[in-house]
Structure formats: C-alpha cells, structure tokens
Design a protein around this nucleic acid. Structure first.
Lengths: 225, 225
DNA sequence: GTCTATAGAACGATAGAC
DNA sequence: GTCTATCGTTCTATAGAC
C-alpha cells in the first residue's frame, strides 16, 4: 500500500492526469496543465512515461484491472448460482455497472474522477484513445455480450447488438457528465449517490433490454424470460 | 436554394467545419484542417466568422433550427391528436429522434456528418461548446421534459430526470459514433439505416421509460399507462 | 472579399547540467 | 531522478497588400 503523504512523482502525475483527462478530455488536457496540478516538472512526465499517449495508457491501466476483475468475478458468481437456465438481466447489468460506479467511493480505486474518465474515454473521438479502449475493454465487452445473449435467449443477435450500444451510451453519458443531471434536475437528482444511480440504471436498462422486438413480419417477438 | 456548383466561401467553410468538428471534436479539429477540406484561405474563416468558437456556433445554428421546428411540430401534432389523455411515450420519442436522424438522408439538412455532430456536441467536454448547447437545445429539452412527464403520469419527477438522461446518452452515443455498432456487430448492424435505428431506439427507450419504479418503500410503483 | 505573411502563444518533446 | 532551458511544431488570430 502506497503512502499518500509521500507519494512519489509517478503517482502524483498519474493522480493529476486522471483528473485532467476526465474533466477536459485527452486533447484539451495539456501536459503543462497536468504538471501544474501535480506540482512536478514537465520533464518528469516524459522521464516516467515517455509520451502523453503513454501517460493516458498508464492512468487507464492502473485502474481498469480491478474493475475488470470485479466485473468478471460477479459474472462468474452469477453464472454459478444460475446453473443452466438463462441469466437474470438485472444480474448481468449489476455486474457491469456496480464495479464501475464503486470506484467513486474508494480513492484506492480512483475516486469520482476515474468514473468520469471511464465514461469520457468511451465517447472520446481521438483515435489513439479509441485504440487503447479497444485493447483494454475488448475482453470485457466480449464477455458481457455473451452474458447478455444468455440472459436474453430468443432475442435476435443484431437486436441485442443495438441494445448493448444503448446500454453503453446511457452508462457513458451519466458517468462522464454527472453534472448534467444535477443541473437539469435543479439539484434534486444526485449522481454522487451511486447506489441510487446503479438502481435507476439497472431498472431502466433491464426493461429496455427485455422489450419485445420487431420480427420484421409486422408482428412482435415474444417476451423475453 | 443555393447552388452547390458555385457555393460561396462561407458555405464551403461551414460544410467543411461540420465534418471536421463531427469527426475530430471541437478541440482537435483545427482551423487549418478545416480550410484544407474547404479549399479556402485561413483568413477567410476569421473574416466570415470571427473565431473558431463563432464558427462552431454558426455550423450548429444553421442546422438546428429545422430540426427543432420539426420536433416541435410533431410534438404539437401528437398533443392535438391525443386530447386530454396521457401522450404515447413512443410518440414523444419519435418526435425527438426521427427529426434528428432524418438529417442523414438530406444534404439540405446536413447529411450524416451533422447527425454525428449533434451527438458529439452532447458529449463534448469543452465548456464553450456546452454553453452553446445549452443555449440552442435548452428550449427543446424543456419542451420534451414536459411531454415525457405527460406521457408518464405517476412517474416521480426525479426518476423521470434520471431516465431522460439515459435517453439522451443512448441517443448521443449512437449518433456520434455509429461506427462502433457496425464494428461490434461485424457489419451485421447498419446504423446508416436510420429507419431501423429509430425503431430500435424507440423500442428500447420506451420500455426503459415505462419500467416500474422503486418507491423507496421496498415495493414497486405501478405500471405506467 | 480574398490573399500572403506573420505575430504571439501554447503545445509535446528533448538535451544536458546537476 | 530531477531540474532548467529550449527546440521545433502547431495553434488561433491579425495586419496589411491587392
């Protein structure tokens, strides 16, 4: 466990970069802004990380492993408890959402800034960032796609693909810009209440995922599970 | 109707900026990139628009008025047809989504690039861009918030606020990065098929909006409408 | 209105002393 | 490992000729 009181330069940079990338986006967050937040020298970034791009990768990798592990563990537990039947959609969503939102309450996991950065990364237009996202999230994405398919037997695969994109979009939007909800609701909705946020998301998204689908024959597909 | 064959400098710049801002984001799309797309001089941008920020505002304003008008008209028609009862959720979603996606097929309305830009703007971290979005979208947002409330009587307002954010997030993600769905589905889902996209979105989102809600007392709220 | 030329600032990255 | 100083580039914005 690293002591905060004498955090080394590398950690100071990672912490500052996390906040800067989350709030401003990759392009707009300059190395000079990051060093001023971290209270270190400009050259230190290149010494420890090599480049801006490598810094983002380091920030991301530091936090994503615990989240991915927790997601995977929850999914595995759900699968074991379920046996051979279809998975509960809510359970799969929980395994996807809660480990990400849990970061907000634990500075060890990154805190609220890391939640924002996770969301931001998904909608970041920069190609380098998207490549990094694919490398770091690809396995998790595939794992959950399969789980959703097993939770929604009968749902045609293309329809599921559309719906998974909606799930990701809704998650990303709330995670990367929680201020918007607070502002729109004049403070009555608090995105910092992550237990509530998870519940609201799971309620909404599970209903969406389970919606009857259009068979393309003018009729509707059956209810799922 | 403006002739494309001898479009004036101002229009050339607007067209190029639309594509550049949509694909790269506001910060990453440089004026030099835009003038090279447009085939005009760098000074021309400042002469016609004054600043990069003012250029984005001009790009945005040129296209948003027809969309907002169409959205409002559809909502009004729905309200007139409905009378005093609750609005159909699907109808409200249609009025919100279809006018935006319709841009893709009509170069007069901006084409596919403008759909991407609409989505991109929503998730753009730049403060200036968010201020512009608030000014241009605020009235529409308020109008549709009211319509959703009327379509979902009994749904507590804070819950509705959460759900509207999920709707916006799902829309924005699909609009600003249609390539992701195509890639994730290995080409089997085509986001360019906007009729299908609208149907999939409306099916998913209306089910989410209508989901039973948690009353906070351990029981569930009634079904809506 | 359209251009060339350039100002002035900020950027990522690096060399080299300590 | 840490720093200062600076390189070379790119950015938005502008001055001024035509």
């Amino acid at each position: 466990m690293r002591e905060l009181r004498d955090a080394d330069t590398k950690t100071l940079i990672l912490d500052a970069a996390e906040v800067a990338f989350a709030d401003l986006g990759f392009d707009a967050a300059s190395l000079r802004h990051i060093i001023s937040l971290a209270g270190v020298n400009l050259a230190a970034i290149h010494y420890h990380f090599g480049s801006k791009e490598a810094l983002l990768a380091a920030v991301f990798r530091r936090r994503i492993a615990p989240v991915s592990a927790e997601r995977s563990a929850r999914l595995k537990r759900l699968e074991e408890q379920t046996g051979d039947g279809p998975l509960a959609v809510e359970g799969v969503l929980q395994a996807l959402i809660e480990p990400a939102l849990r970061m907000a309450h634990d500075p060890e996991l990154g805190g609220p800034a890391m939640v924002r950065l996770f969301g931001r990364t998904i909608v970041e237009p920069n190609e380098t960032v998207q490549k990094l996202l694919g490398e770091e999230f690809g396995a998790t994405f595939a794992r959950f796609s399969t789980a959703f398919a097993r939770a929604l037997p009968g749902l045609p695969e293309p329809v599921l693909m559309w719906r998974i994109q909606f799930v990701i979009g809704a998650m990303a939007h709330l995670m990367c810009d929680p201020g918007k909800l607070k502002e729109a609701s004049a403070g009555r909705c608090d995105p910092a209440d992550t237990d509530l946020a998870a519940r609201e998301m799971i309620t909404f998204l599970s209903a969406g995922l389970r919606a009857p689908w259009d068979t393309g024959l003018g009729n509707r597909g059956g209810e799922v599970a």
